[in-house]
């Protein structure tokens, strides 16, 4: 199946799913970080230059150096793998095995930015991302890290105000989830299509159209909390 996801399993047999993030989204995050760094740099640099003259210029250059090289590392290691840009776009840096990044990985992947930047404007990094199945740039490949989407916790399904109905036969967990999903999303679907979906559920409900949908609501009410009547 082609779902662009990365499946890992821990020694305890727990399976973890990550979705590596593509170049576009990472590009936006980089841009936000870049703007932020430029802003911080200017805010530090101009007062230093005005008050301290040439010594201030030196200190300012040190600040720029730190912003260039330490910014990513510090935010990634201390901020749960997320720089402000990544935080805004819901991205996170992880080790390939799903653990949080440590100093070693973060320093490596940020130092190798220099390679990814070559020959100009992240040409090599972009090429590597387009070629790699997990969108890793050279720094990620060397440090063994991936950038993934941070999963938003899914809100709990709302309890339905419908009289619960018992299921006619047992359903697998996946099928139960499908039913809950259907009831959550069916309002966004055009009315004719809703009726079609109701028809498709006939083997389960034994009814067609709107009646079938209503019956499904009843099943889901039972699945999401209320005791079956």
């Amino acid at each position: 199946m082609l779902d662009g996801k990365l499946h890992l399993s821990t020694p305890e047999g727990v399976s973890l799913v990550f979705t590596p993030a593509g170049p576009a989204r990472r590009g936006y995050a980089w841009l936000i970080d870049w703007l932020l760094r430029a802003l911080i740099g200017l805010v530090l640099y101009i007062p230093l230059l005005v008050t301290l003259g040439r010594a201030g210029m030196g200190l300012g250059l040190v600040a720029f150096f730190l912003l260039q090289w330490a910014y990513g590392v510090l935010f990634e290691v201390l901020g749960d793998g997320r720089t402000p840009g990544k935080r805004m776009l819901g991205l996170q840096v992880l080790r390939e095995d799903g653990l949080p990044v440590g100093w070693r990985e973060s320093v490596l992947r940020n130092v190798l930015r220099a390679i990814d930047f070559m020959p100009l404007c992240y040409g090599i990094g972009l090429g590597a991302m387009l070629l790699d199945a997990r969108f890793r740039r050279i720094g990620d490949l060397v440090a063994g890290t991936i950038v993934v989407y941070r999963e938003q916790p899914t809100p709990l399904p709302k309890a339905l105000d419908v009289a619960p109905v018992a299921l006619p036969f047992p359903l697998t967990p996946d099928e139960q989830r499908t039913l809950v999903d259907l009831v959550e999303r069916v309002h966004a679907v055009p009315p004719q299509r809703q009726l079609e979906l109701g028809d498709l559920a006939q083997p389960l409900t034994g009814l067609r159209g709107q009646a079938s949908l209503d019956r499904l609501y009843g099943y889901v009410a039972g699945l999401t909390g209320k005791d079956a009547a």
């Binding site: 499908t178 069916v186 966004a188 055009p190 979906l197 498709l200 083997p203 389960l204």
Partner: peptide, 30 residues
Amino acid sequence: GCFGLYLCRRAELEGWDIELSLRRLAARRN
């Protein structure tokens, strides 16, 4: 990329994944 987005929108609008699951359920049943 845009085609992926289009597919996702259609799946969301028309409940493709739900349809597939319902069909699978029916197949299991029948």
